[in-house]
């Protein structure tokens, strides 16, 4: 009897787990599978990889991909350089400012990308004549350089702030930052050294997460770039989708794989050293508390 109830108890959750996994799998993998089939199954020709091999030759592929990766790298760097010192400083020296920083970092959430772009657009267009020979005007021009539009980086940094703030904040929350810095200082490390050698290594996971989220955001961003008239990868996919449906879907599949590859690389980098969170269940073998108090 006891054995019976035991198996029954066990079976139910397994059944539900299976069902949920199936539904989720269909929902996520179904469209991808169909996309892949659509790209390789050409009516009249049978199975062919022509859509994929054709991508490389398609005009704009390399330049738009390079632009996107450059924008992503610049955005990640800007977000980390801006937020990490700010959050560490606020935690250590002015804890009362935390609420303010949180509000400022969350503000972009309430501004839709379209509204943000409209605002940027009107600022860029606004240029009274008497300013036309000043550095102000040249700056406005420089940040719109189609080779590397700094204005997009600025917009992306803004859009990434809420995500970056959350991940970094939760990483910092897991550390006793004040004590760690004090311990480092009492070991002879000055302020910058304490931050670089003690705080940053322990924020590794949070830094990587932030980098990944920001990267994913930039790779998929369409609205701002499209309205401002630049051609990063997402905009390029859209533009060829209008003329070559198959190539466009093939590129989407490729970009999905690219994003996954980047995710895996980041995750692997994060696993290089043991994580800072205690893993009690997987605790190391033998002599622990009991043997040596």
């Amino acid at each position: 009897m006891a054995a019976l109830t035991e198996t029954r108890r066990r079976r139910r959750p397994q059944f539900w787990r299976g069902a949920v996994a199936l539904i989720a799998g269909l929902y996520f993998l179904g469209p991808m599978l169909l996309s892949v089939i659509f790209t390789v199954d050409v009516p009249g020709e049978g199975l062919t990889l022509g859509a994929y091999t054709g991508i490389v030759g398609t005009e704009g592929f390399a330049s738009s991909l390079r632009l996107t990766l450059e924008l992503a790298a610049a955005t990640v760097a800007a977000v980390l350089l801006l937020l990490v010192p700010a959050l560490v400083a606020v935690r250590l020296t002015a804890p009362r400012l935390r609420a303010l920083v949180e509000i400022v970092c969350s503000l972009p959430l309430v501004v839709p990308a379209v509204a943000l772009t409209a605002g940027i657009n009107s600022v860029l267009r606004w240029g009274p004549d008497h300013l036309s020979h000043t550095p102000f005007f040249q700056t406005i021009n420089a940040i719109q350089d189609p080779g590397f539009p700094v204005v997009l980086v600025l917009a992306y940094v803004l859009m990434a702030l809420p995500l970056a703030y959350r991940t970094l904040d939760s990483g910092l929350r897991a550390l006793d930052l004040a004590t760690l810095v004090e311990a480092a200082r009492s070991c002879g490390a000055n302020w910058p050294r304490a931050v670089v050698q003690v705080v940053l290594p322990n924020l590794r996971g949070a830094l990587l997460n932030t980098a990944f989220l920001t990267l994913a955001l930039v790779l998929g961003e369409f609205t701002v770039a499209s309205i401002l008239g630049y051609m990063p990868f997402a905009v390029w996919i859209y533009s060829i989708g209008n003329s070559q449906a198959q190539t466009s879907v093939a590129v989407s599949v490729l970009s999905l794989l690219l994003t996954w590859a980047l995710l895996l690389i980041l995750a692997a980098a994060g696993r290089g050293r043991p994580s800072r969170t205690p893993r009690r269940s997987a605790a190391a073998p033998a002599p622990t508390a009991q043997e040596i108090p």
Binding site: L175, D176, E182, A183, R185, A189, V198
Partner: peptide, 20 residues
């Protein structure tokens, strides 16, 4: 004298080892 030049070793109340 700043903390890092004080020549004083300290043990803290909370666990303060560098986790990494």
């Amino acid at each position: 004298v700043p903390a890092h030049r004080r020549d004083a070793g300290m043990v803290f109340q909370s666990y303060s080892l560098f986790p990494h």
